[in-house]
Amino acid sequence: MNPNEKWVAFYTILIKEIRRYLRIWPQTLLPPAITMTLYFVIFGTLIGSRIGEMGGFTYMQFVVPGLIMMSVVTNSYSNVVSSFFGAKFNNSVEELLVSPVPNVIILAGYVMGGVSRGLLVAIIVTCLSLFFADLEVKHFGLTVAIVLMTSVLFCMFGFINAVFANNFDDISIVPTFILTPLIYLGGVFYSLDLLSDFWAGVSALNPLVYVVNGFRYGVLGVSDVDVGFAFAMLALFNVVAFSFCMYLLNTGKRLRQ
């Protein structure tokens, strides 16, 4: 395929993905808006007013960046895992596999579809958060970069999960038993300064700590971890995940016989 044909193929996959999640918006866009509003009301307003300041900010201001990132992570992941596994389940993935679309374009199409949903949900949640807290983005470029890298990373994780999944249980196990605990223990609701040295050390192994703190630094200008290190870790995770996704596609593991 020439570059123009590759662009058409990429754009086709992207539009198909966007059309899919917009068609089922009550399942894809509405739930994060409702869930995050409840988080803002309960953790930010009702409980947060009794907690007081954290990291030099009101508790509401402190949790908002983490909650936005939580939406980005879960929606990026679930978009790709459900879409790609759905395509595998109804065999429509064969439409792509038998076509001349290069593997990297297939991956890019699905990932950017997930990123677009992650960003759309991030915008919705950010707009809702403005009803509860004053937000002023300190480092705009870094904030956008962290959101994009996080979204791309979790889209690729979702892709890997979809490739290995055999049934719909398999695509809910990872979000339920791995992703959600990592998010909750990733410093969304508390500062790592509150933890003992042992638990702070354990938390350093959680990739979500870098995602949440990197984004919090971009928005509020404060972070529990070194931002440069967080950025480097995110970049490293992206390279490893991309390499593994391409390995799966190029070898046809779990996709071709």
Binding site: M1, N2, N4, E5, K6, V8, A9, Y11, T12, I13, I15, K16, E95, L96, S99, P100, V101
Partner: peptide, 9 residues
């Protein structure tokens, strides 16, 4: 969509 996979505008 199928046309798009083959690079057709």
């Amino acid at each position: 969509t199928q046309g798009g996979y083959y690079g057709l505008p």
